[in-house]
Amino acid sequence: MSQMDDMELVGVALRAASPARSREGAACLDDQRIAALAEGSVTGPALEAGVDHLAVCHRCRGAVSSVTRALAVGSIAREVDLPGPQTAPRWARYAVPVAAAAAVAALFFVQSESPSGTEAPLHREGPAATAPAPVAISPTGPTTTVRVLRWHAVPGADRYRITLFDELGTVLYETTLADTLAELPTQVGIEAGRSYYWIVAARTGFDRWDTSALVEFSTAGDAR
């Protein structure tokens, strides 16, 4: 039996077995989390939790599918200004050779963008109103023990979002806080002899984030 036959058969069976309506539960996703999943701005543990819920909740999955389809409609997409079909995960642009890192870093210094890595929506102001981007203090370059990430404060910023990636671009840790340092939880394993990347985004206005350059650091020792 071909894949199309499988898809037709299982698809029709799944559709017919789907409940028409299911009630909202305590664990159901609110509008903001549904929107965030639909636009693809959820990463790390939050994404895993969201996917786990969608796998068991017909109501929320239907809502995410519905909003996702709506965002692809021209008249809505123009207003929302989402990027086109994703060809690489959000982290992929960070997983660049060291030789290209300087260019990427320069790009980040002059560009204001959301933490989701997507283009600024129409309702944001232009570059003239861009606040200074946050600048990393440590760790950068070769280092030994890393448990804390530090950066310079940005005037007017009330929140900072930090994302840590491994060499493959996988998100190892992401958090949002008001301070200018983030202590890595013990479960975030920083291994010797490996390279890591991190960025910090500062919230400087309504739905507006300014992102630092991508920072690389490497830990001393032999890779396992």
Binding site: G11, G40, V51, L54, A55, R61, V64, P85, A88, P89
Partner: peptide
């Protein structure tokens, strides 16, 4: 499970499913 439900049952385009689920591409 979510990929099957979104792509087969809800008929969401594969590229959009990839965006939601954090997958590389369609």
């Amino acid at each position: 499970r979510v990929a099957v439900q979104m792509y087969v049952v809800d008929e969401v385009p594969a590229a959009d499913v990839a965006r939601v689920l954090g997958l590389k591409d369609a």
